[in-house]
Deep mutational scan, measured.
Amino acid sequence: MQRVNMIMAESPGLITICLLGYLLSAECTVFLDHENANKILNRPKRYNSGKLEEFVQGNLERECMEEKCSFEEAREVFENTERTTEFWKQYVDGDQCESNPCLNGGSCKDDINSYECWCPFGFEGKNCELDVTCNIKNGRCEQFCKNSADNKVVCSCTEGYRLAENQKSCEPAVPFPCGRVSVSQTSKLTRAETVFPDVDYVNSTEAETILDNITQSTQSFNDFTRVVGGEDAKPGQFPWQVVLNGKVDAFCGGSIVNEKWIVTAAHCVETGVKITVVAGEHNIEETEHTEQKRNVIRIIPHHNYNAAINKYNHDIALLELDEPLVLNSYVTPICIADKEYTNIFLKFGSGYVSGWGRVFHKGRSALVLQYLRVPLVDRATCLRSTKFTIYNNMFCAGFHEGGRDSCQGDSGGPHVTEVEGTSFLTGIISWGEECAMKGKYGIYTKVSRYVNWIKEKTKLT
């Protein structure tokens, strides 16, 4: 034993070699072989497995989906700052455009905790909710729209109204504003409101030439003092309507412009014939205590009207009353817009006519005020429907199939267009061939041609 100890002390290297040989010859039971080890760690190889990531292109799944990435790591994937920024906006807080917040056709661009709407022409605001041009839906104005110097929408209202708090709607500024039905039992019968379409306001006024200088022999019209197929109006439903009495009662109609003036057809009036105007009328054979009678003290036909040349060209006249009318729910003026808007309103496509005229061709006159909704007829169809001249200051309205029309005794009465609950004068009943005849239409004086003249002559002093 002493000898062994001496050998170990003198030859430590020998001992180490012996131990190493023993270990190498022993069977290893701690580690699995290569094949079995792979069965336990069965993990798919990654895209760049075996390579240094710093030297390969980034992978979106590896960089940002398996674990949260930084902007720089995302930049490695896209290799483009702009594309990385677009991805980053949604990656950080989701897609803010998912709810489609942009209105009126706006395009949404996502941002971090926010979004941006790219608005089409005519709109602005956070969600493109603000109209900035009158060309689109009248700028959301209830009545009139004008573009300011910086191309912003400025709404306005006709006389007797003021802008509401929203700067879009119009509200009454006087007790009985024009064009409004205020009798409670008839307010439910107000005709369907007309909503502004998209309009090209630059070209809204037709490029028409008034044929002022045409000389033409007097034409022989049949029954051209021209509501057939209409309905009984309720008291106060058309408070701007008046009836004219002269040699015979209810020979023509008219509309209240203001307390002192009536507008009617020029062919209705004769110099030297006494005319009485009755406002607030409903049943011409009954006294309903809503009527107001006034005498006409002055007749002003349009300066281009000449019955000797043509009885229905420039067929418009103004009547001055001896005493002002007292405005109330049964006696209310009709609204008159400017030339541009009167023309736009007419193009809405349908209007209402009213009167006490004959209820059928050569038949009896109506006792109760009649009204009828009539569609506008395109000019080409209008011209083809008659052998008589249709001037540019006239328009056609009615039904091709016949059966409904204005008729004798309705002449001078109103053709009105309702705009968001307020009625505007767009025409004056003038003439036609018979009444409600198939293929024939009622012919009306186009008020847009005469609004400046009306307003100039009827100013209240």
Rank of each mutant, 00 (worst) to 15 (best):
K146P: 01
K168R: 02
V248K: 09
K446D: 15
V277W: 01
A9V: 05
T276R: 11
D232G: 04
Q408A: 06
D378Y: 03
I17R: 00
C117M: 01
T186K: 05
A337P: 03
L325C: 00
I334L: 08
C145A: 03
N104I: 03
N80V: 14
G355N: 10
C108L: 03
T29S: 08
A279Y: 00
K311M: 07
A173L: 12
C28K: 00
Y201E: 12
S423D: 03
T264Q: 00
T81C: 08
L52Y: 09
K168C: 06
E10K: 11
S406I: 14
Q167T: 09
G432P: 13
F221C: 13
T332N: 04
M394Y: 06
Y91P: 06
K274P: 08
D93P: 15
V451E: 04
S169M: 11
G50A: 11
V374A: 10
T16K: 05
V359D: 04
S156Q: 06
L372H: 14
E124W: 06
G254K: 00
K387L: 11
S204R: 07
P172V: 07
D198N: 08
S11D: 02
T426N: 01
V248C: 08
Y450E: 00
F251K: 05
F31P: 15
E54T: 06
Y115C: 04
S220Q: 11
F388E: 14
R62I: 13
R62C: 07
L376A: 05
F78S: 15
E340W: 14
Y371H: 13
A164N: 06
L130R: 13
S354R: 07
A307S: 12
V195L: 12
L103K: 06
K152R: 14
V202Y: 08
V296H: 01
V30D: 15
I112Q: 11
L321D: 01
L318P: 01
C252T: 01
F176D: 02
I7F: 11
G160Y: 02
K274C: 03
D33E: 03
G280K: 02
R373T: 13
C97G: 03
C170L: 00
L32C: 06
G363A: 05
N203D: 05
A397G: 13
L376K: 12
A265T: 03
N36L: 05
T186Q: 09
S350F: 12
N310S: 08
C155N: 00
G272P: 10
C119I: 01
M394P: 02
N166A: 03
L425I: 05
G160R: 01
G351M: 02
F55R: 15
E259H: 06
P333W: 00
Y305A: 02
R379Y: 14
T190F: 10
D110M: 15
V30F: 11
S49K: 14
V277S: 01
V199H: 05
C18M: 09
Y312A: 10
K137T: 08
S217C: 11
E171M: 09
S406N: 14
V331S: 02
T209H: 08
K126I: 12
G351A: 09
G403Y: 15
D150W: 06
E67T: 11
P101R: 13
Y22V: 06
V447M: 12
T186I: 10
T264C: 06
K260T: 00
S423R: 13
I275Q: 02
S411L: 12
P333E: 02
Y330W: 13
G442D: 04
C117P: 02
T81K: 13
S217E: 08
E270M: 06
N166I: 01
E79R: 08
N147S: 07
T209S: 12
Y444V: 15
V257C: 02
T209L: 09
K68Y: 13
F121Y: 07
T417I: 09
I214C: 11
V227S: 07
L189E: 11
G403D: 15
I262A: 02
D338R: 06
S25K: 05
N5S: 05
W118P: 15
I428M: 05
W88E: 15
T133A: 13
A380T: 09
F424G: 00
R379P: 15
K339E: 15
N48C: 15
L244R: 00
L14V: 07
I428H: 03
D322G: 08
K146Y: 10
Q57H: 09
G427H: 01
M394A: 12
H303K: 07
V202S: 10
R358V: 10
S99E: 11
S354K: 14
I297C: 04
S49C: 09
V353R: 15
C134G: 02
E67V: 03
P120H: 10
S204L: 13
P101V: 15
I443T: 11
I428K: 00
F87V: 12
N113C: 07
A149W: 04
C335E: 02
Q370S: 13
L460K: 15
E208I: 11
T264R: 01
I309P: 05
C18P: 01
A266I: 01
F121H: 08
C69R: 06
E434R: 04
V419W: 07
R298T: 05
E434Y: 07
V202G: 07
V368S: 05
I344F: 15
A436L: 10
N59H: 07
N113A: 05
G106L: 02
Y22L: 04
D338I: 03
F31E: 15
I15W: 05
D150H: 07
Y47K: 02
M394S: 14
R191N: 12
Y305K: 02
D315G: 02
W453R: 00
F345V: 07
I316S: 01
E433P: 11
G442P: 08
H34E: 05
D198E: 10
V153P: 12
V195R: 05
T264L: 02
H282D: 04
T389M: 04
W88R: 15
R384E: 09
V195F: 04
K440I: 03
D249R: 05
E66L: 09
I17N: 01
R180P: 02
T389N: 13
C134E: 02
G236V: 07
T225W: 12
W240T: 00
R384W: 05
E340N: 15
W240S: 00
V248H: 13
W453A: 01
I336E: 00
F395W: 02
F71H: 04
C170F: 00
R358Q: 06
R180D: 01
R379T: 15
V451T: 03
I336C: 00
L367V: 10
S114F: 03
N166H: 03
D405W: 08
T389V: 10
V273T: 10
N38R: 08
G355A: 15
T158R: 00
P120A: 07
C157E: 00
S411P: 10
V419P: 01
R364W: 07
V243F: 09
Y22W: 13
P172E: 05
A37G: 15
G272N: 12
A397Y: 02
P235M: 09
T81H: 15
G403E: 11
G50P: 07
H415K: 01
G351Q: 04
E72H: 15
C155I: 01
S70L: 14
E61M: 08
V183E: 08
A233V: 03
R162C: 03
H303Q: 12
V248I: 09
V263F: 01
F55N: 11
S385W: 14
L32F: 06
E79I: 12
F395P: 02
L189Y: 12
G230H: 11
Q370T: 05
I256S: 00
M8L: 10
E72R: 15
D212H: 09
E82T: 15
S220G: 09
S365K: 03
F221Y: 06
E54Y: 04
K387S: 07
I344L: 12
T133D: 09
C119Y: 02
P175G: 06
G439L: 03
F123L: 13
V183T: 13
G280D: 01
L103Y: 08
S350C: 12
F121T: 15
E434Q: 05
P197C: 14
E285R: 11
L376Y: 07
L24T: 04
C145E: 04
T194W: 12
N5P: 09
P197T: 10
F251I: 08
A366F: 13
V181W: 06
E285W: 11
E116V: 12
Y441S: 04
D200V: 09
E129M: 08
V377Q: 14
N5F: 14
N38E: 13
E420K: 14
K347I: 03
N80C: 06
H400E: 13
E434C: 12
E171T: 08
V257A: 02
V242K: 00
Q185T: 09
F348Y: 12
